[in-house]
Computed example of a mutant assay.
Amino acid sequence: MAEIKLSAEQRTEFGKGAARRIRRDDKIPAVLYGHGSDPIHVTLPGHDTMLALKTANALLAIDLGSDNHLAIPKQVQRDPLKGFIEHVDLLIVKSGEKVTVDVAITVVGEPEPGVLLVTENTTVSLEVEATHIPTDIEVPVAGLEVGSQVLASDLALPEGASLAVEDDLLILNLTHAPTAAEVDAELESAEADAGIEHDQPETTAEAAAEPESSEG
């Protein structure tokens, strides 16, 4: 993974008021920590940081002028309503150092017809070199049949990476895809169990209400 360079400024103001002023200037408060050093409080450029963090496990080259650090994002706090970044925790890493990260699972191909593919885990935790974090792990499913499963131990990991989870962690499960009739039957059964009754169509209800005509 290529490094993404971000120019940072060290900050000395803290608290909610200071954070709001930083964000008004289109900057983001952040903290660098790790390797036994004291936390370094910085501000990052808002737009550039937002773009950089669209890449999962981005490797950031933080330029502090006379000081530079490699770091990966460990926690990104966002506004729950508007979604903008409020604060970022960055873990300082060294070239060749191994870190534990969650890497996305990408399904490639299509299983056999009539097979329902269930993703049990969308990511897998790996121990990898900080400067060689994969963007994703591809899992081919072409031709897989009902009853097939993909476990963590089945994943093709990049060189130097190892699992940070149990080998038998279930990633993908392939089951029988229900037919439309089966779906309708299951829905009707669930509605019946819940006591849900549907109104009769108006035409049927009206016909039932009309008295039979008599002749003669």
Rank of each mutant, 00 (worst) to 15 (best):
M1L: 13
E3H: 04
E3Q: 14
I4M: 07
L6A: 02
Q10M: 09
R11E: 05
F14T: 14
G15Y: 10
A18R: 07
I22G: 00
R23T: 06
D26H: 11
I28M: 04
A30T: 10
Y33Q: 01
H35Q: 12
H35S: 09
G36H: 10
S37V: 14
P39W: 13
I40F: 05
H41Y: 07
H41F: 10
V42C: 02
G46I: 12
M50K: 13
L53T: 10
L53W: 09
T55D: 04
T55I: 11
L59K: 06
A61D: 15
N68D: 05
A71V: 13
P73C: 10
Q75W: 06
R78E: 12
D79E: 09
P80V: 14
P80T: 14
G83K: 08
V99S: 07
V103F: 04
A104E: 12
V107E: 03
V108L: 12
E110Q: 11
P111L: 05
E112P: 01
G114T: 11
L116F: 11
V118A: 09
T119M: 06
E120C: 03
T122K: 04
T122A: 08
T123E: 04
T123C: 02
L126T: 11
E127N: 11
A130D: 01
I133E: 00
P134T: 11
T135G: 02
T135D: 09
E138H: 03
G143H: 03
G147F: 12
Q149F: 07
V150M: 06
S153Q: 09
S153W: 05
S153N: 08
P158H: 03
A161E: 03
S162I: 08
V165A: 05
L170R: 07
T175E: 12
P178F: 15
D184I: 11
A185N: 05
E186W: 07
L187R: 13
D193V: 15
I196M: 01
I196S: 00
E197P: 00
P201Q: 11
E202N: 02
T203A: 15
T204P: 01
